[in-house]
Nucleic acid binder design. Structure first.
Lengths: 194, 194
DNA sequence: GATTATTTTGAGCGATCGTTCAAATTACAT
DNA sequence: ATGTAATTTGAACGATCGCTCAAAATAATC
């Protein structure tokens, strides 16, 4: 997973995998069926850990909204050293994989699941009165996910930590501003009927 | 450029390029020195067009801020058919290329230039009184760019157009909300001294 | 039109790609 | 200890990778 995450699917060769897994080609193909199947398995593992980490973070906090905020702020501490890549493996793979194909839908399915987790957190926040009942949580979830995507891409530019910190603060503040402001009131009505 | 944009660097083979350019390998290596050099040239072309398009869009409008808003809203019409890829070629390449290397810094340099263009638009908006003098335009520029990154990644998931439209509206509305709200007032002071 | 410079050609280079499979090894059951 | 099943090994496969270069074709110059 580390290899695929850091180097991407194409740039990771079986030679690399043999060394990392300490397995000869035959064993690899006995355990997994192909390089692509192994890649899928790593995507599963990555997505599983990501969603688990996210859910744990949310459930550990009394305020789901604050948890999401802290998560965004925490993205400022993405150093190229600690993780294989500061970018999201799912996003990296999404952009690398062919436009239409099994792998693409496989990845989008995982992204949908992550979005659902964010949506659940927002619904919980709504239930606790942190958010007005009028907000479209599914729509807001996608927006929060979009923030995360953007931030993790920016983290790849490894500029000075201060700017990254400021950026995360700004986007986290967006979420914090949601409770008091009727932020989506105007456009919300567009989808109110559906 | 179309090929690299759509398929990425690694997935584009010289066979593909020979067919697209209608050139034999020898001619390609006479014109460009290597596959990587050709890739760099396409990145130059892409970034050049992107910045030009962005500047034209800004200068054609009396309100730079409204132009940026319209740009974000326009991202909802990113169809997988019209362009080689709905994703930004620079972002795609940034995520594909090795962590440290010439290519990486080459790409980030281009991203910096795009960010500068956005920053210039914001400064122009500030000069016209569309933005309070207190806002850190450089910092805001990065935030706008982060929105664009996130949106173009989301566009890769080709879900129903309505949701994409809503998402773009939401992020464009963020920009629209900047003039009246002292949005960055609290965190702004953190970098005010530098 | 002859001569020189430039460009294009495409076969083919060594390397590496993902993958296979018969043989060797290890683990397990009796 | 013996036989059987499961696993690992690593050489080698065909295909493709990015790339080279002598020869052929074309363009430019006088």
């Amino acid at each position: 997973m580390t290899l695929f995450w850091a180097k991407g699917y194409h740039a990771t060769s079986l030679k690399d995998l043999e060394a990392a897994l300490n397995m000869k080609p035959g064993s690899i193909y006995a355990a997994f069926h192909s390089k692509e199947a192994l890649f899928r398995a790593t995507l599963d593992r990555y997505a599983g850990r990501m969603t688990a980490e996210m859910q744990a973070m949310i459930q550990s906090s009394p305020s789901p909204l604050a948890a999401l905020q802290r998560h965004l702020e925490g993205l400022s501490e993405l150093t190229p050293c600690s993780r294989p890549s500061t970018a999201c493996m799912l996003v990296k793979s999404l952009l690398e994989v062919p436009q239409d194909g099994d792998l693409r839908s496989f990845i989008t399915a995982h992204l949908d699941r992550v979005e659902q987790v964010i949506g659940a957190a927002l619904r919980a926040a709504q239930a606790k009165g942190e958010l007005p009942p009028s907000v479209d949580t599914a729509r807001l979830a996608r927006r929060v996910q979009t923030y995360i995507f953007g931030l993790k891409v920016q983290a790849q530019r490894e500029t000075d930590p201060q700017r990254m910190h400021d950026l995360c603060q700004d986007l986290a503040a967006e979420i914090g501003r949601l409770p008091q402001s009727s932020s989506t009131e105007g456009s919300q009505s567009e989808t109110a009927g559906t």
